[in-house]
């Protein structure tokens, strides 16, 4: 049993390692370092700047309100969702339709999920650069203060692997959809791939709403958080962000700071999943 496990781990690790190398080769060498740097800076900062300007117009640049860092950090971390999910699932489309290597990889002794995960690592690294750049920019120029001593690091560390895993799982799920779409003559290659991509973007949007939404006028906050629990980033991300910022210290939102129901929900949810191993759906 142990030998089999060791063998499986070695096999998966080999697949993951090679795919990581391949993914980095593909993602990193399309431009010289200068252009790559420009790309890594402009894209995330523009995305953040849209929200910053929107906010500053309405609130007359009141960046001291805790809602601003909440929105800002939500937008920053949201980049992971897009990069990781599309990074993994697009690898299937690329390999199949452009490089035409999918058939060789699939029939090779490669652990395919590990391969896909490895291909997503490069996008994760690039996303991390964007996220860090955005956060640092916010700290330097927009008065975002992240009090690292106030963060519930235990909770943060517990959550991070979960939403990282779940974002990846969504990517794997989409990747599987792309593979299935490719094999289905009824859907057709492009239609299936396109539909899977569109479903992803739909998920992004839903999570984006959940992540950015802080209004309890339109959406009851508990309802938001409960709904967000169905998606990897919305739930974990919201909770993590709330602990990174002083969100819950703001009087307007302090009533949301009930760790007990959250923890109860998490524990209940996790226990129920441990009891009933079900088909991997990639959702929380």
């Amino acid at each position: 049993m142990q030998t089999r496990l060791a063998s499986f781990l070695s096999f998966s690790w080999r697949s993951f390692r090679l795919a990581t190398w391949l993914g980095w080769q593909i993602e990193s060498n399309w431009a010289d370092p200068f252009l790559f740097t420009i790309y890594s800076l402009i894209k995330p900062l523009s995305s953040a700047a849209i929200l910053v300007i929107m906010y500053s117009i309405i609130t007359k640049a009141n960046f001291d309100s805790p809602i601003f860092p909440y929105i800002y950090l939500g937008n920053a971390f949201y980049m992971y969702v897009g990069h990781v999910m599309t990074g993994i699932s697009w690898a299937v489309i690329d390999d199949r339709e452009h490089y035409k290597t999918m058939k060789y990889i699939y029939t090779a002794p490669v652990h395919f999920p590990s391969y896909l995960l490895g291909r997503g690592v490069a996008r994760f690294i690039i996303a991390s650069i964007s996220v860090v750049v955005t956060i640092v920019f916010g700290m330097l120029f927009l008065n975002i203060s992240i009090d690292l001593t106030q963060v519930n690091w235990v909770f943060f560390c517990i959550n991070s692997p979960y939403w990282g895993r779940d974002a990846s799982a969504h990517g794997l799920d989409s990747g599987r959809n792309h593979v299935v779409a490719g094999s289905s003559h009824v859907r057709g290659r492009r239609g299936g791939s396109r539909r899977s991509l569109s479903i992803q973007w739909g998920h992004f949007s839903i999570r984006g709403i959940a992540s950015l939404s802080t209004s309890d006028r339109l959406l009851n906050a508990h309802y938001v958080l409960a709904r967000a629990s169905t998606s990897p980033f919305g739930w974990h991300g919201c909770l993590q962000l709330s602990h990174l910022t002083k969100f819950f210290q703001c009087p307007t939102f302090s009533h949301l700071n009930h760790p007990d129901p959250f923890l109860c929900y998490i524990i209940r949810h996790r226990v129920s999943r441990l009891r009933k191993p079900s088909k991997r759906t990639g959702t929380n």
């Binding site: 809602i67 479903i199 949007s205 984006g208 709403i209």
Partner: peptide, 21 residues
């Protein structure tokens, strides 16, 4: 997928505006 789902992405910005009044 290409028509209705993009509404969700603008909805995010709408909610931000409404949240900040």
């Amino acid at each position: 997928f290409d028509i209705f789902l993009p509404i969700l992405s603008i909805a995010a910005y709408v909610y931000v505006y409404r949240a900040i009044g």
